[in-house]
Design a protein around this nucleic acid. Structure first.
Lengths: 217, 217
DNA sequence: GGATGTGAATGCATTCACAGCA
DNA sequence: TGCTGTGAATGCATTCACATCC
């Protein structure tokens, strides 16, 4: 049994705060599109179910960019959040696994405008190799290292069966990938130079099950 | 601007603990398949990157079902966790939206054995209605209420575009759905008799981006 | 007046450390 | 001896409340 390292903190900033920054950014994009110029911590918080103090504290971890009496300038804050999250630069991302989920992800275009670009997909199954899905070509696993180097790939989306996930994860670590968005229902064992984010649909549904069950009683 | 209610706690049990119960269950299924009969809090924790004390405390919230000197009996604990999470009964689930993601979810069979059954899919687009995907028929939105009643549906998976999500959410609330697994990148505004769990892929990637960025510096 | 930014206070969650049991 | 269950202690995160600024 391999031993997992516990989740570690990257900095002095609370992990939940970093998650909320993403939510702020998403909401601010909406405000920006709607033509709104400024926003208060109160308004931003209410639209997300978060207290105004929490919003201010989260933002203040990264400096002072509010304006007394005014609030935050939407475009300014968007730019700053992108910079903080690292999505002001474009990340090249690979998708491993071109099954149902992998294909759906390749066709989902919601990433593009947000600082991520899917540059290639990989599948072990030769019959899938060569096809183009959502404008991205499916390649053989053997070409992973080359592609990763060519595009300086640091992020990967893992959409392979659970049984294969750890092996692929090890491969990815070896070629310099440092972040994995993992859709396989397993806890990956990774080194210290790698972070993972596992999205397990069954886990998600179980959370709902628990809570709905409680409401029904 | 609609105001969201803050996340509330269902009981005296820490929310993070409930999330971990799902992880324990997932891991225990593996042990069970491998023929392992008992497991200690230490072993279970290590395989998930969680401390042994944490494991024991999480489980102890729900009673005492460990055995001194032995640990926990795997099958017994699996049964108990299913019971706690509510997945010892079968939940009928509907999928709203038969686009890329909706289709992928319908074809993903990983739920079945875990207490969830996809009973129907719905789409607004008439050209999709009538098709069968992964053994599930796509129906018109208009038939949602009937199906929900017929199958006593309490859980829904939302895979519609962001712009449509809130309206669908309101519909779902009206017909008695109480839990939503939301893949649209918006914070849904719900009443008190409803819980949501939003999986936003961009948010997930942004978390990785932030952390990988920090590691590269 | 209407906001931010922030120390202080509170409230949660996790870990420690050990009694107790097989 | 090996392990659980649990109060006590610690450590984090959130909220309060107010000085401060436009």
């Amino acid at each position: 049994m391999r031993r997992l390292r516990a989740t570690m903190r990257t900095s002095g900033i609370p992990n939940p705060a970093i998650r909320r920054l993403s939510l702020y950014l998403r909401q601010l994009d909406l405000y920006s599109q709607a033509g709104q110029r400024t926003v208060s911590s109160r308004q931003l918080g209410q639209s997300l179910g978060i207290s105004d103090a929490q919003v201010r504290k989260d933002l203040a971890y990264f400096g002072q960019f509010g304006h007394s009496g005014i609030g935050y300038r939407v475009d300014e804050l968007v730019a700053r959040l992108r910079n903080i999250l690292g999505t002001d630069k474009l990340w090249n991302v690979v998708v491993i696994g071109a099954g149902n989920l992998g294909r759906a992800l390749l066709q989902y275009r919601g990433f593009m405008s947000k600082g991520f670009r899917l540059v290639a997909a990989f599948d072990q199954d030769a019959s899938k190799v060569g096809k183009s899905i959502g404008g991205v070509v499916v390649r053989p696993m053997a070409s992973l290292a080359n592609v990763a180097e060519e595009y300086d790939v640091r992020l990967a989306i893992l959409a392979v069966p659970a049984a294969a996930a750890q092996d692929v994860c090890d491969d990815l670590a070896r070629i310099g990938v440092m972040g994995i968005l993992n859709f396989a229902p397993v806890a990956l064992s990774t080194g210290t130079r790698m972070v993972q984010n596992t999205v397990d649909l069954a886990v998600q549904l179980e959370q709902l099950s628990f809570q709905v069950k409680a409401m029904l009683e």
